[in-house]
Amino acid sequence: SSGAIIYTVELKRYGGPLGITISGTEEPFDPIIISSLTKGGLAERTGAIHIGDRILAINSSSLKGKPLSEAIHLLQMAGETVTLKIKKQTD
């Protein structure tokens, strides 16, 4: 049976990049997913974020019904501590 787990990851960026690339579309209900991780970057080092994971919220702002451009804007405005709500498929 296919299921999913949902969890929250807190990234402290200390002025540096998060080390993630996200992808999606401008269709508001398409998923926003992690499309790549910078090798040795902040997100990869947590061990908790993987390519293909879906981002449900950024700093408690839900991405439900929001296009990719809004998600990118939220990441850019997120500040030093970025909290990502992640949904991972478990097959």
Rank of each mutant, 00 (worst) to 15 (best):
S1N: 14
S2N: 06
G3E: 14
G3A: 09
G3K: 14
A4I: 15
I6Q: 03
I6D: 15
I6K: 08
I6Y: 14
Y7S: 12
Y7W: 10
Y7L: 14
Y7K: 15
T8A: 07
T8Q: 04
T8M: 05
T8L: 06
V9Q: 01
V9I: 10
E10C: 10
L11Q: 01
K12F: 05
K12A: 07
R13Q: 04
R13I: 07
Y14K: 15
Y14D: 13
Y14L: 15
G15K: 13
G15C: 08
G15T: 15
G16T: 06
G16N: 09
L18C: 15
L18S: 00
G19D: 03
G19T: 02
I20S: 02
T21A: 06
I22E: 03
S23P: 03
S23N: 08
G24F: 04
G24R: 07
G24E: 12
G24M: 10
T25M: 08
E26P: 05
E26L: 04
E26Y: 05
E27L: 09
E27S: 11
P28D: 12
P28A: 07
P28W: 04
F29E: 10
F29L: 13
D30H: 13
D30L: 03
D30A: 09
P31D: 04
P31Q: 13
P31Y: 13
I32V: 05
I32M: 02
I32Y: 09
I33H: 13
I33W: 15
I33V: 13
I34C: 10
I34Y: 04
I34H: 05
I34D: 03
I34K: 00
S35R: 08
S35N: 10
S36I: 03
L37D: 01
L37P: 00
L37V: 14
T38V: 15
T38H: 11
K39T: 09
G40A: 07
G41W: 02
G41S: 10
G41T: 05
L42W: 06
A43R: 00
A43I: 01
A43L: 01
E44M: 06
E44G: 01
T46N: 15
T46C: 09
G47F: 02
I51N: 05
G52R: 04
G52L: 04
D53P: 03
D53G: 00
R54S: 11
R54W: 10
L56R: 02
L56M: 08
L56Q: 04
L56W: 02
I58F: 02
I58Q: 00
N59C: 02
N59T: 01
N59S: 03
N59P: 02
S61V: 12
S61T: 15
S61H: 09
S62F: 14
K64E: 09
K64I: 10
G65F: 05
G65W: 05
G65Y: 06
K66I: 10
K66D: 01
P67E: 04
P67H: 07
L68A: 07
L68C: 09
S69C: 07
S69K: 10
S69V: 07
S69Y: 03
S69R: 09
E70F: 12
E70Y: 08
E70T: 11
Q76N: 11
Q76P: 01
Q76I: 03
A78Q: 09
A78W: 03
A78R: 06
T81P: 12
